[in-house]
């Protein structure tokens, strides 16, 4: 029995072997990180870039961590924090450039490799809502995506966004309200 036997499989694997552990980490959280990246950025290509960058940074950070720090890691909140930092930096860098014309740059959230028919079905159901999400102010969009797209608990979102739980809740409810208004206006 080792002192780390009670850990979840991801952290156990990371402690055993960094590279095999990384494969576990990626397998467990790739959908979560990618979904958040896709709905925050609104673009498939940006979501791939953000996800790749987040996991690469995570690996490089893990390579420098002590065993104790890995054992105490909350992988999900930690990964989402890395993603949010990258996304904010990207958004900041983009905001220094002239803003894109939304009419010319529709939200492109379709996997270029996806079957045309699948894409059409998903487009009908999700496309409009995804576009509305991209109209929310950043902090509301972040709170709504983390709470309702990737289903993180409010306490974890507070950790990730480094804001009080009450503020998370108000961002979420304002974001949802705005989505309903925007949806009704269409």
């Amino acid at each position: 029995m080792s002192e780390f036997d009670c850990l979840d499989p991801v952290r156990k694997a990371l402690l055993d072997d960094l590279d095999e552990g990384f494969a576990e980490l990626y397998g467990a959280y790739r959908g979560l990180v990618f979904s958040a990246a896709l709905r925050l950025s609104g673009r498939w290509a940006d979501a791939e870039d953000l996800t790749a960058e987040a996991f690469l940074r995570a690996y490089r950070a893990l390579a420098g961590y002590e065993r104790r720090r890995i054992a105490e890691l909350q992988p999900r909140a930690w990964l989402m924090t890395i993603l949010m930092n990258i996304w904010r930096n990207c958004a900041r860098a983009k905001s220094r450039k002239p803003p894109p014309d939304l009419r010319e740059e529709p939200v492109d959230d379709v996997d270029p490799g996806e079957d045309v028919e699948d894409a059409a079905v998903r487009r009908e159901t999700g496309q409009e809502l995804a576009e509305l999400l991209s109209l929310l102010p950043e902090e509301q969009r972040a709170a709504v995506v983390l709470r309702h797209v990737v289903d993180l608990p409010v306490s974890e979102i507070a950790t990730v966004l480094k804001i009080p739980q009450g503020t998370v809740k108000s961002h979420v409810s304002r974001g949802l309200k705005r989505l309903r208004t925007l949806g009704g206006a269409r």
């Binding site: 790739r30 959908g31 979560l32 990618f34 979904s35 896709l38 709905r39 979501a47 791939e48 996800t51 959230d109 996997d111 490799g113 159901t125 999700g126 809502l129 995804a130 999400l133 709504v144 309702h148 797209v149 990737v150 289903d151 949802l176 989505l179 309903r180 949806g183």
Partner: peptide
């Protein structure tokens, strides 16, 4: 339906 719609926006990476 809004919450259901948001939950359906999750996607797997290629």
């Amino acid at each position: 339906p809004l919450l259901t719609g948001l939950a359906a926006l999750a996607a797997e990476p290629p």
